[in-house]
């Protein structure tokens, strides 16, 4: 028996919008810790990891660990039927091949339930160890989105370099080149507007902009984004989900042939 009641149902809607273009099918895992997902894109270049902690739900009942395979496009279709202010409850029964999404309007005058077929997904689960990163950049998520979008109109890949001068995003394409440098800036009105660069060592890595642009679909989930870089590791682009957890995207770098 599984019953998860999320008062801020819009969070789940936003999570689906952030993941459904990157991943087609995924197993949602439910345990005492929370509601989570780990999935790779079809080319195994990027990975998404989601955690919504059990404490963030108004009601969280999960009698035993359960994994539910869902088509994210179909799940998104159902969640789009929920209002932005609706409370969403996810219900499942042991051994059932369906999951139910219940939507309640804030004043309880409209209650809907949508039953979706589950699927068997044979997915590979990866162990991601805690890592020391050479540089961690925290910046407004809208700024990161703007940079990825702007650069993708010039080139296909971006070089992200962190030095003591700041973080530089560079691209080149048929029409020319572009460089955007963001310097640390803590003197802002709100903490989420700050750009904070923690650098242990200078680092420079190349990534496909197509994936980074896809990650920025998570921008509505958080005012700020954290980009963690290490020369031997995939970049981690993390959006914190207020009081609940996070959505993290991992992207493998491109290297010189």
């Amino acid at each position: 028996m599984l019953e998860l009641r999320l008062v801020q149902g819009s969070l789940l809607k936003k999570v689906l919008e952030a993941t459904k273009d990157l991943v087609t099918d995924a197993n949602f895992d439910c345990s005492a810790t929370g509601f989570s997902l780990q999935a790779m894109d079809s080319s195994h270049v990027a990975l998404v990891a989601l955690l919504l902690r059990s404490e963030g739900f108004e009601h969280y009942r999960c009698d035993r660990n359960i994994s539910m395979g869902m088509n994210l496009n179909n799940m998104s279709k159902m969640l789009k039927c929920a209002g932005n202010d609706d409370i969403i409850t996810i219900k499942g029964d042991d051994g059932s091949d369906t999951v139910t999404f219940m939507f309640e309007s804030p004043n309880q005058d409209k209650i809907s339930d949508f039953e979706m077929k589950l699927m068997d997904i044979d997915s590979e689960h990866l162990g991601i160890p805690e890592a020391e990163y050479h540089a961690i950049v925290k910046m407004p998520s809208s700024e990161f989105q703007r940079i990825c979008k702007d650069l993708s109109s010039i080139g296909d890949t971006v070089v992200i370099s962190v030095t003591k001068e700041g973080v530089k995003f560079s691209t080149r394409g048929d029409i020319g080149t572009a460089n955007i440098v963001c310097r640390q800036n803590k003197t802002v009105d709100k903490p989420e507007e700050a750009t904070i660069i923690e650098m242990n060592e200078p680092v420079s890595l190349t990534f496909a902009l197509r994936y980074l642009n896809s990650f920025t679909k998570a921008t509505p989930l958080s005012e700020s984004v954290t980009v963690s870089l290490s020369s031997e590791l995939p970049v981690v682009v993390e959006y914190k989900i207020a009081d609940m957890g996070y959505i993290r995207f991992y992207l493998a770098p491109k290297i010189e042939d």
Partner: peptide, 14 residues
């Protein structure tokens, strides 16, 4: 030219 690495080259299956 550059080669795109795969995420599975970095993290192990559990």
């Amino acid at each position: 030219s550059r080669v795109q690495l795969s995420i599975t080259e970095f993290y192990r299956s559990t």
